[in-house]
Design a protein around this nucleic acid. Structure first.
Length: 586
RNA sequence: CGGACCAUAGCUCAGUCUGGUAGAGCGCUACGCUGGGGGUGUAGAGGCCGCAAGUUCGAAUCUUGUUGGUCCGACCA
């Protein structure tokens, strides 16, 4: 391609609303253009990168046994009602909808379990047809409340989604493993370092799932991991072992302590310390956090208890609440309880809640690490009053459920033994789920098994945010001058910069360009009438991996060869330069 | 959905407090000079100051409303 025909428009200044580096560089380089909030045009260069990622994904998923199909973006409401997810996705406002002239409402694909389950259910009648796996790479929609971070969080994006169907859990596990391997190959071929972590399965549901995280400080997810034991999990799901609470000698009698205006944990600890309660620390406090949970059945008041120095894990809590509700009832959302309701359920000002008989909530869940700990200090459900010497087993209200609802953190011990957990940020680029029969059972997608019985299809589903992978690649590979695309997904392999004014110099650049082109190299000839500095800045910004310059070196018959990544320029002869490029982009 | 902020040239922003001729840098156009890291000279084009009402002799500037956007939180395969 000739640069003079590429309409290259690069920005010197960073747009005001671009916070993270991938957003800044993609905008400045002209790779993307904001069409609206959370809506982006992929320019010609970006499209080429996307095409390459898509090609790699298609190849690897096909190798893993997937068959590519295309499903509609518009999905009938009835399909979603048959799985029971319509209400959930409307209530959580995850799904965008459109209505036609007849008044029929459609969802804009946030994912396609319902559509594909309906499809497979009609095509698959016998266990002899199994297993089977379909996939597509198509536009997906999310009703993002707040799009941000450029391509990271948008309303419309490209995602590969694959769905496998099985006669047994064993078969599902085999395919799940094949897909897991395929994911690793995909990220490797894209030149990305991805970390596989245990994950929460969220609103998709199912029995097990892993996420593929691309490590980046700007990532929105937190990963806890330990290299020695190879444990890695999303903090939403991660478990660990917390250090024991510091010793605290107490007569174990229940004592009410006046704590005027001491609502927070830290306040109470300081206050009690001054009052002579020696050795009391935050880990001897029992923190009671109050929530209001919305479910398909109604509103529930919830108390969640954790050790005073730790935090409640919302995701785990939400799952735990779901297990307390009747079959088929789904938790839609979890909110901090408003102050008026707090006063109602505790009979006190906010800050003095405790899991006593006087706590009038529908559900009370205590973290499992509190089962064996005591005595503690907790709120007394009276304004300005705490209770010391509290033992949850002995003094707690009836019906307390013990579950893991703790947010683990760096420094906690690894659950697989050995050392401490470390923490890093990651971008969720892929997610695989063992769905089981959640959708097939609800939608009546069954097959005849070997015993001549109808059985719901066992399913797995697998997603890769293709467009998010692009942003993650920029996050992972860039420097002060711009992007650094890995060769396999770079929009072009090489740019030939014509930096001489004389006719011979121009002709040499032209000839080298044509020769590279003919040998299958994806190459750009920059013959624009611009100073060389401008050209260098442009291509560094756009991150083309290889650069040849026909400039002052040509006086001695040499061409400057430089790799975008940590390359020191080297002067080679014309033919050597061509060979250098051909070798580098193999 | 709570809280904060912004809207002036294609982009980044001054000007608003204290009402009185519409500004800068970058980008763009033309013509030179120049060529190894966004070079330079001259001459230009480009704005209903988001929109609507109000106050005023007079509004980018003050008031109210409205619409879009941004940030923090909540939410989120």
């Amino acid at each position: 391609m000739r640069a003079s025909r590429m309409n290259i428009v690069t920005l010197r200044e960073t747009p005001a609303d671009a916070e993270i580096v991938s957003h800044q560089l993609l905008i400045r380089s002209g790779f993307i253009y904001k069409s609206g909030s959370g809506l982006y045009i992929y320019g010609p260069m970006m499209q080429r990168v996307l095409n390459k990622v898509r090609a790699i994904v298609t190849q690897e998923i096909t190798t893993a046994g997937g068959m590519e199909i295309t499903m509609p973006i518009m999905q009938e409401q009835g399909l979603w009602e048959s799985s029971g997810r319509w209400e959930e996705y409307q209530a959580t406002r995850t799904m965008l909808t459109v209505t036609d002239r007849g008044g029929q409402t459609f969802g804009l694909a946030p994912t396609a379990e319902e559509v594909v389950t309906d499809y497979a259910g009609h095509l698959i009648n016998s266990h002899k047809q199994l297993p089977v796996c379909y996939f597509q790479q198509h536009t997906k929609f999310r009703d993002e409340i707040r799009p941000r971070f450029g391509l990271m969080r948008v309303k419309e994006f490209v995602m590969m989604d694959a769905y496998s169907f099985h006669a047994s859990d064993e078969s599902l596990s085999e395919t799940y493993e094949e897909m897991r391997q395929a994911y690793h190959r995909i990220f490797e071929r894209c030149g990305l370092q991805a970390l596989e972590v245990e994950a929460d399965s969220g609103s998709i549901g199912g029995s097990g799932s892993h996420e593929f995280m691309i490590a980046a400080d700007s990532g929105e997810d937190t990963i806890l991991f330990n290299r020695d034991s190879a444990y890695a999990a999303n903090v939403e799901r991660a478990v660990g072992v917390i250090s024991a609470a510091a010793a605290w000698t107490w007569s174990s009698d229940l004592v009410e302590v006046e704590t005027p205006d001491q609502g927070g944990i830290a306040d109470v600890v300081t206050f009690l310390g001054e009052k002579g309660y020696a050795g009391i620390a935050a880990d001897r406090m029992l923190k009671t956090v109050l929530f209001t949970a919305e479910s398909t059945e109604g509103t529930h008041t919830v108390a969640a208890c954790v050790r005073g120095d730790r935090d409640v894990n919302d995701v785990k809590l939400s799952n735990a609440i779901g297990r307390q509700l009747p079959e088929g009832v789904t938790v839609l959302g979890l909110e901090s309880m408003n102050e008026a309701t707090v006063r109602q359920v505790t009979g006190a000002e906010p800050g003095f809640a405790g899991p006593l008989a006087s706590l009038a909530v529908d559900i009370c869940i205590a973290d499992e690490t509190l089962e064996e700990i005591g005595p503690l200090v907790t709120g007394g459900n009276k304004t300005d009053m705490h209770i010391a010497g509290f033992d949850l087993q002995r003094d707690g209200r009836d019906g307390i459920i013990f579950e893991d609802i703790l947010t683990y953190q760096a420094g906690d011990a690894c659950p697989r033994g050995g050392g401490e957990l470390s923490e890093r940020r990651g971008i969720e680029a892929g997610h695989i789920f063992k769905l089981g029969t959640k959708y097939s059972a609800a939608m009546g997608a069954t097959f005849t098994n070997e015993s001549n019985k109808q059985q719901p299809l066992t399913m797995g589903c697998y997603g890769i945010g293709s467009s998010r992978v692009l942003a993650a690649a920029v996050e992972q590979y860039h420097d002060d001058n711009g992007m650094q695309w890995p060769m396999n997904i770079a929009p072009y392999h090489c740019v030939v910069v014509a930096a001489r004014k004389d006719d011979e110099g121009k002709q040499v650049a032209e000839d080298i360009y044509k020769e590279l082109l003919a040998s299958g190299v994806e190459v750009i000839l920059d013959e624009r009438k611009l100073g060389p500095g401008v050209k260098f800045k442009d291509w560094d910004l756009m991150g083309i991996p290889l650069r040849l310059v026909i400039g002052r070196g040509w006086d001695n018959g040499t061409v400057e060869c430089k790799a975008r990544v940590d390359g020191t320029p080297q002067d080679l002869s014309r033919d050597e330069a061509i060979a250098w490029v051909q070798a580098a982009c193999k």
